[in-house]
Simulated assay, not measured.
Amino acid sequence: MDASTDLPTGEVRAYCDLHRRCSSLKAMTGEKKGKVVAKPRQVVLQDVRFEVSQAGLRRTREENVRNVHAYARGHVRDQDVEAVRNHPDAVQIRYNPHKFDTFVRADTLEPVATAQVFAIDGKLSYALGVA
């Protein structure tokens, strides 16, 4: 599976693959539910909820070892990251388990729980309509 794989339809959980500098998209519905179905370098999701497993966060902090425990859950829209990044209302989103308990706005460090649109470009991410 590589970055040229077709994007899935339906709901996915997206998380950052720090080794490959891409996203892993895990299907949340259908016959491939629970499986990683694509690894695009760029992807745009809509109707996103940010999720952090408290048990995974605790393990990361206690053992100082990375594990997948934070996700952006939503529906794949496209790969037009530039349209989101260049939008005047776009905010950069960050997650660092050693500094924050949740995803945060990079400019104000305020926690974010949802976004109307969320674009991932390697290790960077941008959102519109955050709350």
Rank of each mutant, 00 (worst) to 15 (best):
F100M: 03
P111D: 12
V91Y: 04
V130T: 15
H75S: 07
E110A: 15
R61N: 13
A55M: 04
K99M: 14
N64E: 12
K123I: 12
G56S: 07
L124F: 11
L57G: 02
R61M: 03
R61G: 06
V68H: 01
P111I: 11
D107Q: 10
V117N: 04
I93M: 01
A83N: 07
Q79T: 14
V68C: 07
Q92E: 15
R66I: 00
L109W: 00
E82R: 13
V130W: 10
P88N: 02
N86R: 08
V130A: 09
V76Q: 07
V130I: 06
T102A: 10
D101P: 00
F118W: 13
Y71T: 06
A115G: 11
L57M: 09
N86Y: 05
R61S: 06
N96I: 06
Q54E: 13
I93P: 00
A70H: 08
S125L: 09
R66L: 14
V81R: 06
H98I: 05
V65D: 13
V117F: 08
A83C: 10
R105S: 04
R105V: 14
Q116M: 08
V81Y: 07
L128I: 13
A55Y: 12
Q54P: 02
Q116D: 14
I120E: 00
P97G: 04
V130N: 02
G129Y: 04
T102S: 11
I120C: 12
T114N: 12
F103D: 08
A83S: 14
Q79W: 01
D89A: 15
H69I: 06
D80P: 00
N96F: 08
F100Y: 15
P111A: 04
G129S: 07
G129F: 03
Q79K: 10
D121E: 15
Y95D: 10
N67S: 14
R77D: 02
D101H: 09
H98N: 13
A70V: 01
E63H: 12
D101G: 07
L124Q: 12
A106G: 05
V81I: 13
A90D: 07
H87W: 10
A55V: 09
V68L: 03
A127W: 08
D121H: 03
V104M: 08
N67K: 04
H75Q: 08
V81W: 01
N96Q: 08
A119P: 01
G122T: 09
H87Y: 05
N86K: 14
F100Q: 11
F103R: 07
R94K: 09
V117P: 00
Q54R: 15
P97N: 08
G74M: 02
A72N: 10
A70G: 05
P88S: 02
E82C: 04
L128P: 06
G74F: 02
R58Q: 11
A113I: 01
F103Y: 14
V112L: 07
R66N: 12
A106I: 12
H98L: 14
S125V: 00
G129P: 01
D78R: 10
R58W: 05
V117C: 03
D78N: 15
E82F: 02
I120F: 04
E110H: 08
Q54G: 07
T114A: 06
F118T: 05
D121L: 11
Q79D: 14
A72T: 05
N86T: 10
E63M: 13
T114E: 08
L109S: 14
E63I: 02
R61H: 03
